[in-house]
Design a protein around this nucleic acid. Structure first.
Lengths: 232, 232
DNA sequence: CGCGAAGTTGATTGCTTTCAAAGGGTGTGG
DNA sequence: CCACACCCTTTGAAAGCAATCAACTTCGCG
């Protein structure tokens, strides 16, 4: 890894509360790799050899069982994934693929476990990371079990708008196909759902969305801090 | 708390790798409380004042949104719950109610956070706990999204049988109503599902189940270590 | 014996998936 | 520069799984 890259890696939030020496040790054996879109980075069931951290790009976590596939989450810059598997040397429960061309930092599992054992600050940072990840999955489970497809879409639109300045209009960051998978529905259903949102003054033209009446959409979505909040 | 109880608490797996002094400190302000069945122990959205550990009994984690309710998990003796909320002082994402009369150890959140900051061993134990909890929820999410109700039931039967010595027959540890909620289906659907399992030589009489042909049930269930395994 | 909760069974509705086909945009190769 | 292929997206129609409503049975318990 180039020293310029090393500098960049040190600034990853994940390493913030780690002793510099431990960061060095972890980065020494690490790779910073580029992956083109659609490439599978890790595969369900395989042993956890590397902790992965998204430096740039977008990664979809998914899983396949029999002839079904489902998206479990999407990771962006600064997010690590499969930390739990790496820490305790268990097989991956999820697969990951790049949605966009991405740069991924790959830290050998041994080094992570060693730093976890040696550096209490790192151990606490990992605990925090895991706690937030845990709460994220609980929210996803609630979102899935307590809401209809249309409600999930409405809330996703509100959340995404809020994350982008609440302007009421934005472009999709990925294909609608991917959004459908992320929301846990077939692409056809997403299409129909968009049509249904016309009644709530949501206008979709190709990749662009305009929310003309936030209040109306809110009323349909019933956003809730214990499901949607990114902050809690 | 009585000294006899203190002895019992020290043996909780959760405290195993914690310095005795820290355990003392945590237990000093803790309560050991009995709750009758059906009582709600914690409520979604409230601030996390206590870490709860099940000493005896069974607790259901659930959540309500609008007019829908769903079960998110069931905790038994030795399990802690809402650790993530307590650690970082966030509101509970789940509610909890006792399914059976239960004894619950309630440790003040402050004491937990203090021990987390002071004792690296405890911090690591918590990280491990959170990692396993995280993996558990991921499995639950996969179970929910990748399987039909009948498949979830079939797998639950196989898992529960395996946990009880693989004798091929057992009694339900809780009402079928609760099992239905746990599997994410209406009670009526569970009833029909049991009827459907007759074709696979599963016989249900009141609270008792007999699996007469494990192979047949397995073929329907397609158990999978990255969804069902309690060990992974 | 009768109340009440739990469980079963039937009928109906609704959300979602699946299959099928057509429209629309993009990129490549002729 | 056009033609064609390909994929995404949309729309239509049909089928399936699960929820809901309703009625009836069963069982435990006072």
């Amino acid at each position: 890894m180039r020293s310029q890259d090393l500098e960049e890696m040190r600034r990853i939030p994940f390493f913030r509360s780690v002793e510099p020496g431990q960061v060095e040790a972890m980065l020494r054996g690490a790779f910073l790799q580029r992956f083109p879109a659609h490439v599978e980075l890790i595969h369900t069931g395989e042993p956890a050899d590397f902790l992965h951290v998204v430096v740039e790009g977008t990664v979809e976590m998914f899983s396949v069982h029999r002839d079904r596939e489902t998206t479990l989450g999407v990771s962006g810059p600064g997010d690590s994934f499969i930390l739990a598997a790496v820490l305790f040397d268990r097989p991956y429960l999820q697969s990951a693929r790049a949605l966009l061309a991405s740069r991924i930092l790959m830290v050998p599992a041994d080094a992570v476990r060693q730093a976890f054992a040696a550096d209490a600050g790192f151990a606490r940072a990992i605990a925090e990371n895991l706690a937030l990840a845990y709460r994220g999955v609980i929210k996803e489970l609630k979102n899935q079990k307590l809401r209809s497809g249309l409600e999930r879409l409405a809330n996703w639109l509100l959340t995404h708008d809020a994350e982008n300045g609440s302007t009421g209009h934005f472009d999709f960051p990925f294909d609608k196909k991917v959004l459908a998978a992320r929301l846990g529905m077939a692409p056809e259903v997403l299409s129909r759902s968009f049509a249904a949102l016309g009644a709530y003054h949501v206008v979709v033209h190709g990749p662009s969305v305009v929310i003309q009446d936030v209040a109306a959409l809110r009323k349909l979505a019933h956003p809730c801090s214990t499901i949607d909040g990114t902050s809690l």
